[in-house]
Nucleic acid binder design. Structure first.
Lengths: 198, 198, 198, 198
DNA sequence: AATGAATGAGTCTTCATTCAT
DNA sequence: CATGAATGAAGACTCATTCAT
């Protein structure tokens, strides 16, 4: 008696998730090339061969992880649709960024590592550039709204800060004072200046 | 007439440099694991076997590159010995950092990539942590001198900015407005606040 | 109302046939080793697992195909039982051979390919030798009857012609002038010589 | 002290030949797909890895074998350039064909097997067709010269005979009376008909 | 010092076969 | 009877490293 389609679907989804989770952890910590299919299988608790029932190659696993990461990123950006106050948006973006870092440190680690070595994978380079430009556009727009003298450079600066914090957190882990940094960035960069002063 | 010993030494040194330069470029762009000894030899214009006359393994080449990078870093830090004004020091550090980025982008790329994936190489992790702490100590000291309310967080912030800029430049190359960023950072973070402000 | 046993039997037989037909086509065109169980299942329109309800291994499928081919061959040979005139028999054999080629090209292709590489399967070699000898015996007998000076070599020659035609047809498909060849062979080799001249 | 270029060349040539000889034997007897690189290495008395110093893939080994076979074939055809008498040419071609069979049985076996399963390798199909047509052109030409009523079919017939003999010899080996067949074919097909008689 | 042929362990990937349902 | 998820052994290929010359 054959399994019902839903049963198969469940099995498939479960295995797929196990593979992606294992791969993410290994890719993030050891790098794509240094991670063997064997080790992914072992960590996922399945056999080597089964991986190829779900992904046609090691590279496709990485791409699937990227797709997931993208979806999360797009979800976050969609939250700001209704908001008008640029400072409010920046505050939210900052908080979301830190939230993402806390929850998905490994995505950050992997994305950053890959983006540093675009030769690792063909399309990756373009992909990263696109994401970067998209972000810059949004940030530059916000700075224009608040009358910044040099919105583009300001946008680059705040982006650099996010990247730098992300890098620090990825490298040091919980030794990095993520909360303090978040508070500071919100105070310094996401709050309208008081009466006089910058 | 046989070569004098110094000539031999010179030749050796030249070959060593060629190997290191080739390896740096390849490691930085393609990653350590994706770079073969063969490709290093080809780029260096020598034979595969000869590399093993200079380095006992692929890993030792990477370590040699790290050592070189460290020396450069230490050299830079030694420049500030005589200086007293913390703003002056910060300005110099900023300028030196940008200078290093411009001249040695590949070092930055490689160091960052490796530091993100500490499992790649055993010792690397410690090594990175040490360098980070050393830098933080200096920066925290400077912020204390200028009476910053939260010197540690301020030091982390400026470090994050440097890291973020470095990341951006490594990723985008000459599309990244390095000069504009340098100017901005010097203005905003390395200059004493005017009368009232910040 | 449950199916009657014969109905089950029919279904079984139908699945078996589908599998054998799919396997024959794939084995013939791509070779035994290059054909996967998966691809046979797909072509037969059933699941991979089901194949193992009918055949205990991939090799057994090949053997079953061979058995079928043998049966066909034996059937054909049995037609000649009542005939006496050796030319008539040769004519019939020629026509049957061409008929078989037209209808069962894939059997020929597969049998020939396998027979060329006896190491592919243990028993295959013997099996082929037996079939060959059987054929030669019959042909040699016929040539003896018609008083050929060298019946064995004549039998080899006509066998070679059949094999060569088969090879050509398998390779070229419908570009091969099968009809013209049949006519020619019947004229030249299956017709008693006229008084004078070839 | 490095080896001289000629020494390297010698080594390379020797290894290359060993690989090709081993591969030919295995491909011919077991088939391309059933032959592992490991087994080729073992038979050649070298390591698996070394094979990839000489051929970039298993398929390239097969192609190299084909190239060799082609050269031999072209060499043979070039012998007939000066000859005028069509019977003389046919006699020579027959003798050369049998000579080739005796000396290079494995080439024949491999070529025939591959040509039966063109899906094994992409280009192979075309390649075989070309060779076949070339041969047919020559043979048809000869039959036209001697005033044959149906030169194309006659050419196909003699080709079929050669193919059939080749097949028989490949399958039966030294049990196949190659000499007797050669004699017979020369008598029957390469000799001008006597006034009266067969 | 220098070369590149040679080795073999390790990696990705395929696929016949098993099995829970 | 039927399904396809799961396994693991085997195969193609890569590459750090060694070594004869």
């Amino acid at each position: 008696m054959p399994r019902r389609p839903e049963q198969f679907e469940e099995l498939r989804e479960k295995s797929r998730e196990k593979i992606l989770a294992a791969a993410l952890e290994l890719f993030a910590n050891k790098g794509y090339n240094a991670t063997s299919i064997e080790s992914i299988a072992k960590k996922a608790g399945i056999s080597k061969g089964l991986i190829y029932n779900y992904f046609e190659s090691k590279e496709k696993i990485l791409l699937a992880i990227f797709d997931d990461a993208m979806k999360v990123g797009d979800d976050i950006l969609s939250h700001y649709k209704g908001l008008k106050d640029p400072y409010e948006i920046m505050r939210r973006m900052t908080m979301d960024t830190f939230e993402f870092l806390r929850k998905k440190k490994q995505y950050c680690q992997l994305l950053t590592a890959i983006s540093l070595q675009p030769h690792v994978m063909g399309d990756m380079g373009d992909f990263i550039d696109k994401a970067f430009e998209k972000n810059m556009k949004i940030m530059t727009g916000l700075y224009k709204q608040i009358g910044d003298k040099n919105p583009y450079v300001s946008a680059l600066l705040i982006s650099a800060i996010f990247d730098g914090v992300s890098l620090g957190y990825c490298m040091l882990g919980d030794n990095y004072p993520l909360n303090a940094m978040e508070k500071r960035i919100i105070e310094d960069y996401c709050t309208p200046p008081k009466k006089k002063g910058k």
